[in-house]
Design a protein around this nucleic acid. Structure first.
Length: 273
RNA sequence: GCGUCGGUGGUAGAGUGGUCAAUUACAACAGACUGUAAAUCUGUCGCCUUAGGGCUACGAAGGUUCGAAUCCUUCCCGACGCA
């Protein structure tokens, strides 16, 4: 008995993943599940390059606009909803297609990562953040020496979360996976560096033309703090075209660092499509 | 033409006699990542290397000194001021 198949379209930003996903969905009677950590938020449209109604060509898209930008979303939350949505699509007899560039979100589904059931503790986080990374590490080492051996000792975000979990559970559970009963077919889209640069430049230019600055203003008016905007990435942090282009290219590189590790991905040159 | 201030590694910009292959930032390259992930964080970053070192470097050429990116002289280039 073979497992149901799910197509996963991933890759660097600006390689045309969404367009490809839509055409595949058209052919296979599919529905698309976005795997993008920022497109889950309402109101983050232009800066995240979110697909619009017209581009969807009638294909159903899931996990877009499911969160309020003022509150935080998370991988774990994403995973829960995605698993649910996939099952629903399956039930309807449609074909699920995952499409996005957030490697962590994709792995959360395709590798069935088990996240510790420890909700974020805002108060604790705030308190811990005032301390130095060294201090946090020393503190954490006493709580969970095993995990301390390979944690990023200078990364406060990681240390804080580890402490948060250890406080709750006594120690950080070892990484676990609980693979879902699907067969994932991973398709990676890439572009040669000069072409990628070109695409990014065009895309960023369009972003500004389409009103990125207005979008930011709107978010602010809706009560999204500057700090929060910063967390949404460089597009939302006092952007200029030059800066956004530069940062996007750097981001694209980071994406590749992530995807390179996954040997199951079959890569295709997007400029040949 | 005279005067002043400058010319430092891919860029910006510290350093002003020894601990300087040269703080730092940016860029570049590589990497990590298990409830913030376009976030967050790490490493390398003149050349060679059997990794201990070796070699070439702070506009150019000389000089002073045990020792110079740092001081002196001349020259070249730039900015400003006076003509």
């Amino acid at each position: 008995m073979s497992k149901p198949k799910i197509i996963v379209i991933l890759g660097q930003t600006a390689t045309g993943k969404s367009t490809l996903a839509v055409s595949i969905a058209k052919k296979l009677k599919g529905e698309i599940i976005s795997a993008d950590s920022r497109q889950v938020y309402k109101g983050l449209n232009i800066g995240t390059g979110k697909i619009d109604k017209k581009e969807m060509r009638g294909v159903l898209h899931h996990l877009l606009d499911v969160a309020n930008p003022k509150s935080k979303f998370s991988v774990a939350e994403y995973q829960k909803q995605a698993i649910y949505v996939i099952a629903e699509i399956q039930k309807r007899g449609k074909f699920p297609i995952i499409c996005g560039g957030t490697g962590f979100y994709i792995d959360a589904i395709t590798k069935g990562i088990v996240f510790p059931e420890v909700p974020p503790n805002i108060k604790l986080r705030k308190e811990l953040y005032s301390k130095s990374a060294i201090a946090l590490f020393e503190y954490f080492k006493k709580m969970d020496p095993e995990r301390a051996k390979n944690i990023d000792t200078k990364n406060k975000v990681r240390l804080v979360r580890a402490i948060e979990i250890a406080k709750y559970l006594g120690e950080v559970p070892r990484p676990k996976a609980n693979p879902l009963p699907y067969q994932f077919i991973k398709i990676g889209l890439y572009l040669p560096p000069d072409k990628l640069k070109n695409k990014v430049e065009q895309r960023v230019k369009k972003m500004f033309k389409d009103g990125l600055l207005k979008e930011i203003e709107k978010l602010k008016r809706a009560g999204v703090s500057d700090k929060r905007l910063k967390e949404f990435g460089f597009e939302y942090n006092n952007p200029t075209p030059e800066k956004v282009i530069k940062e996007t290219l750097k981001y694209a590189k980071r994406q590749m660092t992530w995807f390179k590790r996954d040997k199951e991905i079959k890569w295709f040159d997007a400029s040949a499509l």
